[in-house]
Design a protein around this nucleic acid. Structure first.
Length: 146
DNA sequence: GTTCTAACA
DNA sequence: TGTTAGTA
């Protein structure tokens, strides 16, 4: 981690935002979903928050819940019922877990120079003899092994 | 000022 | 779901 190039360092920070929490008012204004709805959805077990034992036992929502709430809101606006919207979001969450894991663990190093970006995608084979690289050339990714 | 629960519209 | 009441 300490030897990561700056681009990867920042990217890992973004994809490791585990310490971001919001209170219900913030989440509401961020997503356009009313606090009443958020409480109701939580009661229905569509979203989750953690109780804080200090202060006035106010809810705190994890950063990941922002993505979930935004997703539900999106499908709701598309005309889905609440239940159907949640189902849709759950499928997308599965994909995002994969993407999260891929970016966090699948990308080893990123090198950038003037107009090119090169990504080390890790070992190509089990024996670990070849690396797979992706390079951005003319807005297109070219893959090669070394 | 914000959040909580509960209740009524 | 919105809104309002009475709290903490």
């Amino acid at each position: 981690m300490a030897n990561d190039p700056i681009e990867l360092h920042i990217m890992k920070k973004i994809f490791n935002a585990e310490k971001l929490f919001f209170r219900i008012g913030e989440l509401s204004s961020m997503t356009g979903v009313s606090t009443r709805q958020l409480r109701y959805w939580e009661q229905k077990n569509y979203i989750h928050s953690i109780q804080r034992d200090d202060e006035q036992s106010a809810r705190v929502f994890h950063f990941k819940e922002y993505a979930r709430v935004s997703g539900i809101k999106y499908f709701l606006d598309q005309g889905y019922s609440l239940q159907a919207a949640v189902k849709q979001v759950n499928q997308y969450i599965d994909v995002s877990h994969f993407l999260h894991k891929f970016v966090k663990e699948g990308i080893k190093t990123v090198k950038t120079s003037n107009n090119t970006c090169e990504i080390d995608l890790g070992w190509l084979d089990e024996a670990k003899t070849q690396h797979l690289y992706a390079r951005l050339e003319d807005e297109k990714f070219k893959y090669y092994v070394e």
